Amino acid sequence: MRFVTFEKSDGTVRSGVIVESDLVVDMSEATNGSLPEKLIDFLEKSEQNMTSVAQLSYLTDGDKGVYPIHDVRLIAPLPAPRSFRDFYAFEQHVKSARKNRGLQMIPEWYQIPVFYFSNHLAIKGPEDNIPIPIDSNWLDYELEMACVIGKQGRNISAKDADNYIFGYCILNDWSARDLQRHEMKVGLGPAKGKDFATSIGPWIITKDELEYRRSGKGFDLSMKAKVNGVLLSEGNMKDIYYSFAEMIERASAGVTLFPGEIIGSGTVGTGCILELGTEVHRWLLPGDVIELEIDKLGVLKNSII
């Protein structure tokens, strides 16, 4: 199933599912309030709620709580996640980005999956405008995939980690490269280079929908990024070095993960301007339109202002 959060014509914001590709079901309205209005609350009891929400797939146009998708505005499917950890899990991206900065690959990267915390309260959704941060001239996109935690757990082993995943979505880890470069010379960060915006969406697809695409440590899903309609980045999620299960094992070591936390994969190979080089494409400017596309996960489109 594909879960979304959307704004109705009267301004109310609800969560629900997409059915028949062009209809959105308000899961609370359609079930007379037995399911919650917000996805974050749904995730608190996702296993039992999934039994109820499965019945919504049989609804059609004209049923209670069903809206044509063009009559609502999709926003970030999880507008205020409990936290956001972003990992660094694609070898090609790490190697290329470091090489472009004159740096060698570090052996520690192969020993543990590493991550940083970003601003979980600066989440953007599909079609949202992304403002260029103050004092930045090097704005970059990053083509990533994310998983959403659907069950509480601590010290989760990689072999059990899939049981804690609710679903997956596209993630754009916007980066102000000049701010990032400056602050990380201190040996701490990134911070201001990242915390102004992260886009997710257009929906969260449940993990069962991707099982048949499983390949290696990831999934056989093409990943693409376009700027102003021009294809710049192209990779495949199956090339990931660390699985989401390994990331969850690392993230949950000595720490409790809660439903509604987001874990990012890091950037796929070729998935940002920093890696491609500014001779391939300049840094992003106001008016640029960025589209990230991943098989089964849709297209996440944003404009720069």
Rank of each mutant, 00 (worst) to 15 (best):
T12H: 05
S15C: 08
V17M: 06
I18S: 07
L23H: 10
L23V: 12
G33C: 12
S34Y: 14
S34M: 15
P36G: 12
E37Y: 04
E44H: 02
S46E: 06
T51P: 00
A54H: 11
L59Y: 13
T60S: 15
K64P: 01
L74D: 03
I75T: 05
A76H: 01
P77H: 04
R82N: 12
S83D: 08
S83A: 15
F84S: 06
R85D: 06
R85T: 01
F87I: 03
H93K: 14
V94P: 00
R98T: 10
N100A: 15
G102H: 10
Q104P: 06
Q104W: 08
P107I: 13
S118E: 02
N119Q: 13
H120P: 10
I130K: 08
N137S: 13
Q152T: 13
K159W: 00
D160E: 14
A161C: 06
Y164S: 04
A176G: 11
H182K: 15
D195W: 09
I200K: 09
I204C: 05
I205K: 01
I205T: 08
Y212A: 12
G216C: 12
N236H: 12
M237F: 15
M237N: 12
E249S: 03
R250S: 01
V255W: 00
F258Q: 08
G260E: 02
G266F: 05
I273Q: 04
K301I: 11
K301T: 14
S303E: 14
I304Q: 07
